[in-house]
């Protein structure tokens, strides 16, 4: 049931219109960070206020909404955002990736391939990929506008010189359509290839930083690398302990105080669907 005191999806129509304009601009210039007037939301910064505002702007009463946090549908953050839109928009919610029309995510891309009917909304803590090397916003904006991205490779160079390989394992920078370098939010680099040529619309919202950027369907997204140190989408070298999947991104769980551990799919919906279909891992009960 809807909390009638709120407008549909919490934000007023003017604000949603402003955010939609930013989203459209972002879609028109893939990878470009569009500034927007981020609103105060009834949750703290860092809890997905950017993603929530983007979701609020794109949701319609007919949508089915799914929220994942590090792949899981049942963490506090995911549950609270899902409940938020159940109450303020009255939309249907689901945990099944295939059933959702709008998926808000923190730090993962679902394992199942998304379709043209779907929108993936990322929560972004820091939208500026150049930030840690060049703290001046005025300068990074200029670097984006002039395509001066040598600095991005300096970061990867430092990785290799320090660790012998590119050690950046999440928020791994990408080049969009050969133009803008973009921070894909802190998704594991395992997920990077999924962004490329994705059928669904991908929207990125950074609430505290007041930036929105986007990837329209079927956009070219290339992870930065060196010729002699090519990009690798890495994951833990194990099958899932619950469903036995060999192709999914895994979380490592410590199960006792004697060093026992197991690896399970970080995408809970994917794992449960596989188990329901009869797949079994070595740690399954």
């Amino acid at each position: 049931m809807t909390d009638q005191a709120y407008n549909f999806a919490y934000l007023d129509e003017q604000t949603k219109r402003m955010i939609r304009r930013a989203i459209l601009k972002g879609l028109a210039i893939p990878g470009y960070q569009v500034p927007f007037a981020s609103r105060e939301m009834p949750m703290p910064y860092g809890w997905g206020t950017g993603g929530v505002q983007v979701s609020a702007a794109v949701l319609t009463p007919d949508d089915t909404f799914k929220v994942i946090d590090q792949g899981a549908d049942d963490t506090t953050n995911a549950v609270s955002i899902r409940t938020f839109f159940e109450r303020t928009a009255g939309v249907a919610t689901t945990t099944a990736t295939a059933d959702a029309s709008v998926i808000q995510t923190r730090h993962r891309i679902p394992e199942d391939q998304l379709s043209e009917e779907q929108i993936l909304v990322y929560q972004v803590p820091i939208p500026e990929p150049l930030r840690f090397l060049e703290p001046r916003e005025s300068e990074t904006r200029k670097m984006h506008s002039l395509e001066e991205y040598g600095l991005m490779h300096v970061k990867l160079y430092e990785d290799i010189s320090c660790h012998g390989h590119i050690a950046t394992s999440y928020a791994y920078p990408v080049r969009v359509e050969g133009r803008y370098v973009m921070d894909p939010s802190p998704i594991p680099k395992f997920d990077n290839p999924k962004m490329a040529d994705m059928a669904a619309i991908q929207l990125f919202g950074a609430g505290r930083e007041q930036r929105i950027y986007a990837l329209p369907p079927y956009t070219k997204v290339v992870s930065l690398d060196f010729e002699d140190h090519p990009f690798e989408a890495s994951k833990a070298d194990h099958p899932c302990g619950m469903c036995g999947a060999e192709d999914s991104y895994l979380d490592e769980l410590i199960v006792d105080d004697t060093g026992g551990r197991m690896f399970v799919c970080s995408d809970t919906d994917y794992c449960e669907a596989r188990q329901a279909a009869g797949h079994k891992g070595k740690d399954a009960a």
């Binding site: 090397l133 001066e148 040598g150 600095l151 490779h153 300096v154 160079y157 430092e158 290799i160 010189s161 320090c162 690398d225 060196f226 010729e227 002699d228 140190h229």
Partner: peptide, 24 residues
């Protein structure tokens, strides 16, 4: 905050060099 090698290599990477071994 960047190593000596990274400092020297930056201009090379800025003009498009993408081979780590060469840059180093």
């Amino acid at each position: 905050g960047v190593s000596a090698g990274g400092n020297v290599g930056e201009r090379l990477m800025a003009v498009g060099e993408r081979h780590y071994g060469d840059i180093r």
